[in-house]
Design a protein around this nucleic acid. Structure first.
Lengths: 231, 231
DNA sequence: CAAAAAAACTGATGTAGATCATTATTATCA
DNA sequence: TGATAATAATGATCTACATCAGTTTTTTTG
């Protein structure tokens, strides 16, 4: 009976990017002709908040941090693993500048798609447009959840959320090597790195996780989930 | 030289809703035939998070609060004055339930548009689809700003932000009658109502605003702006 | 219009998590 | 490979804001 909604602070949307399936073979080819693939190494900036938009990007592989900052502090909007679009909001003609920055957490491959071509295809192919709208909508929902998480949950819950997100959606296994530093993890869960460190230790001591340096294993999924839900 | 980006916690997007202008006369008529206008009085719920989606809504006049909650606390995503779409994310077929609730702050008139018809028009009319994408993108940008504001600014800055937003975008004048209670104002700026009350008094004492009950006047716009920017 | 309820206000107290200061460890590089 | 820098870890302190507990004012309603 109890209707307890839950919002995960999960940083990625779980809606798969299917928009390219909607293109005809010809359109696919046209798009490919106006695309180019680039590699970024760890820490490299992929696009900069405020800079002119020229491309919509597709993350082929890797892991990308999408964030905004005001010169003093940083808010991570989401992280994008391979198989997802990046900078989709830029298809908007009103927004000729990027509203956020993107940076590679690890080695990352990006397919840059000419934004004009992308726009053309939207106007021409209604099914493609529809799928783009699906993705934009899913992005909104993801942001809402993360927004709720960062504003209304306490630190333990936020950290639990991020760990579950990494395990469930990014690496898709219970044991993995953390590609993020404690500081990056802190930024991601909206707290200080000292707090992250203390809380990770606590989780480790209570055997919710098994942590050894960068190696992390989710041991007690259920309790972690409960912490994520209760705060 | 200093590139100091600013994010307003402003709760509404300033991008005008122009999508209906993209419809042909015939399409307009078709849409109107599948729309209906409803009036809501103060505090009435317009749609409920989790409920089935049947309509996209257009706020003809009034003021609407869009929020999510987990049964314990509430996060106001945005407030929507007359002239804007509500529940646009619902055009997504994947999301057959509302991801947020909406409630009237004051007497509000809503035009309900059959979501199926709305979707049809998107698939049929590329220009319409493009404009819908514009709006979705603008919404994202607005949410990012608010997200940043609520997570990174301190209480004085958040409150200043909201007051400026009300003055600049909602009422479009420097003196107006607050339609929100202190509690609602608190919810909107992500703090307790006691804190709102104390801070409003402080703003009043320092003559940044002139406050008398529900009547509010922005006196020192510049300083309020500075407070909103610095924290 | 009196009584009840809700909203506004005020002061006192508590606390989650930031900040600061320092040491230990790991990674980087000449 | 040793020197240097970055990251990780830990304890002590500090603070912005919430929470609590109460009073006053305004609004609602029978």
């Amino acid at each position: 009976m109890e209707l307890k909604n839950q919002f995960t602070g999960c940083t990625i949307s779980d809606y798969p990017c299917k928009c390219f399936d909607r293109l005809t073979e010809e359109e696919q080819k046209y798009l490919d002709e106006h695309s180019v693939t680039i590699n970024y190494s760890k820490k490299e900036i992929i696009c900069k908040q405020g800079g002119f938009v020229s491309h919509v990007m597709f993350v082929t592989k890797g892991l990308v941090k999408v964030f905004i900052d005001d010169g003093e502090s940083t808010l991570v909007l989401k992280i994008i693993p391979g198989g997802n679009l990046l900078g989709l909001a830029s298809v908007s003609e009103e927004q000729n500048t990027y509203r956020y920055s993107a940076q590679a957490y690890i080695e990352t491959e990006i397919k840059q798609i000419d934004v004009k071509v992308f726009r053309e295809l939207i106007a021409k192919n209604g099914e493609f447009a529809r799928e783009v709208i699906e993705i934009l909508s899913a992005n909104s929902v993801q942001i809402y959840g993360r927004f709720f998480c960062l504003t209304h949950k306490q630190a333990y819950g936020r950290l639990a959320d991020i760990l579950l997100c990494l395990s469930d959606r990014v690496f898709k296994k219970s044991e993995f090597e953390l590609p993020l530093s404690r500081k990056e993890l802190a930024e991601l869960s909206g707290m200080s790195s000292e707090t992250v460190i203390r809380m990770l230790r606590k989780f480790n001591e209570e055997e919710l996780i098994a942590l050894d340096g960068k190696n992390l294993k989710v041991v007690n999924y259920e309790r972690l989930k409960r912490i994520s839900e209760t705060g």
